[in-house]
Design a protein around this nucleic acid. Structure first.
Length: 576
RNA sequence: UGGGGAUUGGUGUAACGGUAGCACGGCUGACUCUGGAUCAGUUAGUCUGAGUUCGAAUCUCAGAUCCCCAGCCA
């Protein structure tokens, strides 16, 4: 974290923490934890939790642990552990030597379990999964007690030991807490504590064949680590009575669980299951596809860690299930990148321009400012010559109203260079497509300022044809067309909500020569267009850029409005 | 028809019995060698109905709507 991070506004959790410190609860200590399950990549929703947990620890002189919640060997992989650590670090947080694994506590959890069995608080149940479901009752009807519920302690101890020793098959036995089959809270209807899973665990290998369930593992892990505030999402609210029950029966350090609303973002999905689905179905190139809301994807896209932290600090923490506008995230990157990104010129869709009156073999090196927001970033030289490329969008044969850019007869400025006037248009014989422009330049306007003080309404970016580097540029749009893609009946519908145009690859772009050798991950502003980041696929031979986010585009909005009103007029005047 | 939560402009949030504020978005305008940035202005809100009170987003009651829970997932 840096001092430029926006301070998060206080929220109900921070208030509670402050209150606890004031009351000297836990001797004034604050210990939080971020507990990912290593079964997928971290996404922007996790960033919210990471910023919350690490942020609260930092604000209170406490510590935040990174704990992998690895109690289900069938879903978890070491690969994800590495990815998660990299992402948390990248986001800007440091857990020091507080790196823990629920699997490190398997022994102690086993010990706690023996204790609960001895106290008559747990029993080995031989009902099948299906039977357990039936015995559980429904939301409105109480459940029935398992016929195995009242086994003697000794028998439970013996059976549990045999479960641990691998004598039974998966699913044949489970250990259950003995609570209340009539509880209106289904989590309290004798929940399963341990199940048999003869699977290899990414850390403990074949040491265990019984694994604790989340509810039994999580609170006890929190307790072992001396966590004071255990922050989780809303859906665990119903689990809190169970969280408390285990801790109370065991009479061990009792952290406070507090629930907050998970992040929802418009036009995207934030569910590891759904993201995995996109990856597996090949809708995206991987967890780090720049269109993914994963931290790996955002990183590749060019988002800065600071912009994500700022975003997290601005969205607030509440218990209300809201959906944040993706525009806020985009605002946060623009804000950050505007301050730090080097400006360069790059032409995405080149249109050839010949300056008729410019000397044939002349090349001038013109001064260009690297970042108007930060004079300390200095300036660079950009070569100018007789043949240039400008952006296709910057020329119109018949300029619409409010279009200030180049058109036949019009004069505009080439950034840092000269004022030029369009004197000729070359079109393709058959298609009529504009293939080249002829212009004249005013030698008196070198650097871009006319000595007579005359104004031009537009300044265009450009590159010198002979000096420009070829580049590939990938333009990204939102992955989904639906504002809430999760609002579908099934998974096929999720696929149908995908935006078919979320990726556009431009292969014949031209960028200024200063970009030669730009290394993957470096970020630039292509003037007038947006922020771009060098992709991992980039090489010295072929530069590849990802567009992080476009610049605010006032003209695009005006043009869109014009088309809309034009269409509206047509539609509404059938007789006119 | 059980239990647990929630509800403030378009969106996200603040206000903790005393002037409903901030941010994003939208819209104006100024400025500008990026139609960027910046600056200024503007837009728009307390779920409903009763009650308590000098005074209610806040307290009470009734209702409405939304979210979560019937994994040997987390």
């Amino acid at each position: 974290m840096t001092s430029r991070d926006a301070t998060p506004t206080s929220d109900f959790i921070r208030s509670k923490v402050a209150q606890d410190r004031k009351a000297n609860k836990n001797a004034g200590r604050v210990v939080t934890r971020f507990p990912p399950e290593p079964n997928g990549y971290l996404h922007i929703g996790h960033a919210k939790s990471i910023c919350l947990n690490f942020g609260i620890a930092a604000q209170n002189g406490g510590t935040c642990h990174l704990r992998f919640d690895d109690t289900n060997p069938t879903k978890e992989e070491q690969h994800y552990v590495q990815a998660i650590k990299q992402d948390v670090r990248w986001l800007g947080f440091d857990w020091g030597d507080h790196e823990y694994y629920a699997s490190d506590y398997f022994d102690r959890l086993h010990g706690y379990t023996l204790e609960l069995i001895k106290k008559g608080n747990a029993f080995v149940c031989e009902l099948s999964a299906e039977q357990i479901r039936q015995y559980r009752g429904t939301l409105t009807k109480p459940g029935r007690e398992s016929p195995y519920r009242n086994r003697p302690v000794q028998e439970n101890l013996d059976l549990f030991e045999r479960m641990r020793a691998g004598e039974f098959e998966d699913g044949s036995h489970v250990l259950r807490a003995k609570i209340d089959m009539a509880s209106p809270n289904l989590n309290l209807r004798d929940p399963v504590m341990y199940r048999i899973l003869k699977a290899s665990h990414h850390r403990t290998g074949s040491m265990w064949c019984i694994y604790p369930m989340y509810d039994f593992a999580h609170g006890q892990s929190d307790s072992i680590e001396g966590i004071t505030h255990s922050l989780c999402t809303l859906e665990f609210e119903d689990h809190r009575p169970l969280y408390d029950w285990y801790l109370d029966k065991l009479s061990i350090h009792h952290p406070q669980q507090i629930e907050f609303a998970r992040l929802n973002l418009s036009y995207t999905v934030l569910s590891k299951r759904k993201l995995l689905e996109l990856v597996q179905r090949g809708d995206v190139s991987g967890w780090d596809d720049p269109r993914m809301p994963t931290l790996a994807g955002l990183r590749r896209r060019g988002y800065t860690p600071q912009s994500i932290r700022n975003f997290c600090n601005r969205i607030g923490i509440t218990k209300y299930n809201s959906t944040t506008d993706i525009a806020l995230l985009e605002h946060c990157v623009r804000e950050d990148l505007n301050r730090r990104a080097t400006r360069v010129m790059g032409v995405l869709r080149p249109l050839r321009v010949v300056i008729d009156n410019y000397p044939q073999n002349q090349v001038e090196e013109l001064d260009a400012v690297n970042n108007p927001e930060d004079p300390g970033m200095g300036s660079r030289k950009v070569p100018f010559s007789r043949v240039l490329f400008i952006e296709r969008d910057d020329f119109r044969q018949q300029p619409p109203r409010k279009f200030f850019r180049l058109a036949p007869g019009r004069e505009v400025r080439l950034r840092y260079a000269y004022l030029i006037r369009c004197v000729g248009v070359v079109k393709h014989e058959e298609t009529g497509e504009v293939i080249e422009l002829h212009c004249t330049y005013d030698p008196e306007t070198r650097g871009g300022s006319p000595p007579d003080g005359r104004k031009v309404k537009a300044t265009l970016h450009w590159v010198s044809a002979d000096h420009a580097l070829e580049a590939e540029v990938r333009l990204f749009d939102r992955l989904f067309i639906k504002e809430n893609p999760s609002d579908v009946k099934n998974d096929e519908d999720l696929a149908s909500a995908l935006n078919p145009d979320s990726l556009e690859t431009l292969t014949s772009c031209r960028v200024e020569p200063s970009l030669a050798g730009a290394s993957p991950g470096s970020r630039f502003q292509f003037e007038r267009q947006g922020y771009f980041c060098v992709d991992a696929d980039s090489s010295v031979r072929k530069l590849v850029f990802n567009r992080t986010v476009s610049l605010r585009d006032t003209w695009a909005r005006i043009e869109q409005r014009q088309t809309l009103t034009a269409a509206g007029k047509q539609k509404h005047s059938p007789n006119g």
